[in-house]
Amino acid sequence: MLIRLGRKLIKEQRGSTIVLMGLSMLLLLTVVGLVVDGGTMYASKSHLQKVANAAALSGAQELTGQEARVEEIIEDILLQHHEEESLVGTEVQMKSSVRVQLKKEVQLGFSRLFGNDSVSVIVEAAAQVMPMAVASGAAPLGIDESIPLIYNTTYKLKVDSSDVDTGYFGILALGGPGANTYESNLKYGYQNEIKIGDIIDTQTGNIAGKTREGVKLRIDSDPYPPGDYSHRDSPRVILIPVYRPYDQKSNQLKHIEVTGFAYFYILEPMSSKDTSITGMFIERTGTGFTKPGTVDKGAYAIKLVE
């Protein structure tokens, strides 16, 4: 009798073990299924967010131009990533910000057992343009902050000392003095960063000849029609620091303080007698960083705000 009772207990324990193993396997499969579906949702949302960020940042590059161009750029980015059908809407405020909202249905696997075939993934991204406070690639030219900038109006930036009172005529010694350094910076841009508040030495001497060579190179290498500054790679467009005089003594201005940035489009070549660069100031976005309180001089940096 005791033997029969022992056998019965063993059978019952085995039965309980099988039930527990079955429940454990079901629980494990459930967890694995949820993890897989969760991973699918995370990957889809991460991808969609990156696309939204790219669309907002790229669209913001055109916030100083035409709204239709902003929308066109956004559509191009979505098309490149095969997400054109995910667009819910855009909100564009020219010279301010652009917002992009995307929505996509993500197909699920394990969750279908519970009646959930798919889930909606919704993301938003917004980019804002603000006056540029830090930049690289500037030309070794400057303009006094007291001079009003009227966009798309012809200006002449002097490059020699004739008819000036202080002995300074807007030339900056970026990276050190010397005509060769100046020429290289004018042709290719000063590669180090310049920021608001930097104190920069001025360049003395007559460098009109080097300026003519630099201007000629930029015009000759421009593949676009004269007057067309809409292309972001146009070499005729140069970034120049805006300044206020710093530590001026008698009639010599040895240093300037950077207070902002402006974009200047070179309109025409310089003749052998020219001592000024003819062009116009334009509003434009570029590569750089922003800082609250920076004076608006038409050069803007882009910041992702969401």
Rank of each mutant, 00 (worst) to 15 (best):
L2M: 12
L5R: 10
G6W: 15
R7M: 15
E12G: 12
Q13P: 08
I18T: 13
I18A: 15
V19S: 13
M21E: 07
L23H: 08
M25N: 12
L26N: 11
L26D: 11
L26H: 07
L28R: 13
T30L: 15
V36P: 00
G38V: 03
G39C: 06
A43C: 09
K45S: 01
K45Q: 06
S46F: 03
A52I: 00
A52K: 00
S58C: 06
Q61P: 02
Q61A: 10
L63D: 02
A68V: 14
V70Q: 08
V70M: 13
I73N: 09
I73F: 09
D76P: 05
I77H: 05
I77F: 08
I77K: 08
Q80C: 14
H81D: 15
E85N: 15
S86A: 15
T90P: 04
S97A: 11
Q101D: 12
E105Y: 08
V106T: 06
Q107S: 14
R112F: 02
R112P: 00
R112G: 05
F114Q: 02
S118K: 10
V119T: 06
V121I: 05
Q128I: 09
P131E: 07
A135V: 10
G137Y: 01
A139D: 00
G142E: 03
G142H: 01
I143S: 02
S146T: 15
S146W: 07
I147F: 04
P148M: 05
P148E: 05
L149E: 02
I150K: 12
N152M: 10
N152H: 10
Y155F: 09
K156Q: 13
L157G: 02
L157K: 03
K158A: 12
V159I: 14
D160Q: 09
S162W: 07
S162D: 14
V164W: 08
V164N: 15
G167V: 07
G167H: 06
G170M: 06
L174F: 00
A179N: 07
Y182G: 04
K187T: 06
Q191V: 12
Q191H: 09
E193V: 09
I194C: 01
G197M: 11
T202C: 09
T211N: 07
L217S: 05
R218Q: 05
R218E: 05
I219H: 01
D220S: 11
S221I: 12
P223Y: 10
P225I: 11
P226S: 14
G227F: 08
Y229P: 00
D233C: 04
D233P: 01
S234D: 07
R236I: 11
V237T: 08
I238C: 05
P241W: 00
P241N: 06
P241Y: 01
Y243H: 04
P245S: 09
Q252G: 06
Y265E: 14
Y265N: 13
I266Y: 00
L267H: 10
E268R: 10
P269H: 10
M270F: 02
S272T: 14
D274A: 15
T275P: 04
S276C: 14
F281L: 10
I282V: 11
G286P: 04
G286L: 12
T287G: 14
T287H: 14
T287A: 15
K291M: 15
K291G: 08
K291Q: 14
K291T: 13
G298R: 07
G298S: 08
A299T: 05
Y300P: 00
A301R: 00
I302N: 02
I302Y: 01
K303I: 06
K303F: 01
